Computed example of a mutant assay.
Amino acid sequence: MKFVTEYRDSEQAKGIAAELAATVDPNREYRFMEFCGGHTHVLARWGLTDILPKNVHMIHGPGCPVCVLPIGRIDMAMECALKHNAILCTYADTLRVPASGGKSLFKAKAEGADVRMVYSPMDALQIARDNPDRQVVFFAIGFETTTPPTALCLLEAKKEQIKNFSVICCHVLTPSAMEHILLTAPKRADAPVLDGLVGPAHVSVVIGSEPYAQFAEKWKMPVVICGFEPLDMLMTILMLVKQVNEGRHEVENEFTRAVVPEGNRRAIDLMARVFSLRDSFEWRGLGPVPKSALKLSPEFAEFDAETRFGLVEHHVPDNKACQCGAILRGEKEPFECKAFGKACTPAHPLGSCMVSSEGACAAYYSYGRLRK
């Protein structure tokens, strides 16, 4: 299968691993953060951390839109379904994220709320067409990857003048969060000192490689955009090690088969029309992050569920037994949480990192990394 099996070739993996072992400087430590949760799963699923040199450390970042969704936002969605009797539509992982009071959207459904899993925003729009006497709310989450489909859906809703459809917009922006981590790290005693960043794959297909130039220029930080196969990850780590050894700080693109510097201009222009920047947005684990999320632009304000239902987000602290916040900031690994694999499992998660298919805790649990 093109672009899959050839990137899983074990002989090539051995060759890259051997070159990596010969390239690292044994007298220094290398710390690279993979921002995307998909990359965390690549590392865990294929056992890549077992073949990395001992002085190359992969730090897991807040790379999952489900993981970074604050509890207050989930409470807003539940309010729509329980208090306002709306049909609430969202993606599957979101249903199981723990909210305040030990509740979740899945539990709200068990209490009688009309909560439905959808595969795309267009599914939610069709539900609105089929139920003209009910309000239908799409709980829109995701990085830049899932933002264009929401924008297309809103364009269609406006074109058809569907009055019973609205959106709770929780789309967040990757570069803003990456910069926030670098800005706030010196203030946190446990924050790792980073030598380079693994750029996300799907996000970069949309936004391109140009937005990462600020990290190379301002922060003197090497960035390599990486695909989602094991050879992609090994090659990316090798490229980062070479940059560090040579004193370079550039944006390099390992994922050339899908990412171009300018990104997908049609998708970018579409997002710019439908959305505008929020001044600030709370990320689970990171707190309020300036200019890091989107809201509906004035042209599409009629579809804003927050305004339509008078929704107000309140800050809700995480479960004290859960270390998701520290894990999302790269300060701890899942096995350092006392609840991991015991009180917190995929069947009974205490935090969002154990829920999402891209969460670090879910990756460690699924692939047997229950202890260091």
Rank of each mutant, 00 (worst) to 15 (best):
T146M: 13
F309M: 02
I74F: 10
L69F: 11
L152C: 10
E246G: 06
P261R: 14
N253T: 13
F309N: 01
L69T: 08
R96N: 02
H171I: 03
E210S: 02
E179T: 02
L88M: 11
S357N: 14
H60P: 04
A191V: 11
A267S: 13
K187I: 01
Q12T: 10
G310K: 01
L234N: 01
G101A: 09
S292N: 11
L43D: 03
N55W: 13
E217Q: 15
G285Y: 11
M58G: 03
M354H: 08
M221Q: 10
T49N: 14
M58E: 05
S276F: 07
I16R: 07
Y364D: 05
Y212C: 05
L286E: 03
L88E: 08
M117C: 15
P349D: 14
S357L: 08
D269V: 11
L52H: 04
F255A: 00
P222R: 14
A339V: 15
N131Q: 11
T236C: 09
D133K: 09
L328A: 12
P261L: 12
L270Q: 00
H202R: 15
A191W: 12
T345A: 12
Q161R: 07
A128Y: 05
D190E: 14
D93Y: 02
P132R: 14
A213M: 15
P121N: 12
F215G: 00
S166C: 04
C337D: 11
G330N: 02
G368C: 07
V193Q: 10
P346F: 14
V56Q: 04
P175L: 10
P334A: 10
C170F: 08
D93I: 04
E262R: 09
V115K: 06
E160G: 09
V205R: 15
F228P: 05
N85Q: 06
L154W: 06
T49G: 13
A326G: 02
A86M: 09
G325V: 02
C67V: 03
L270I: 01
E6T: 08
A157N: 10
E250T: 06
A339P: 12
D9S: 13
H171S: 04
E210T: 02
P346E: 10
G310C: 01
V224E: 03
E6V: 03
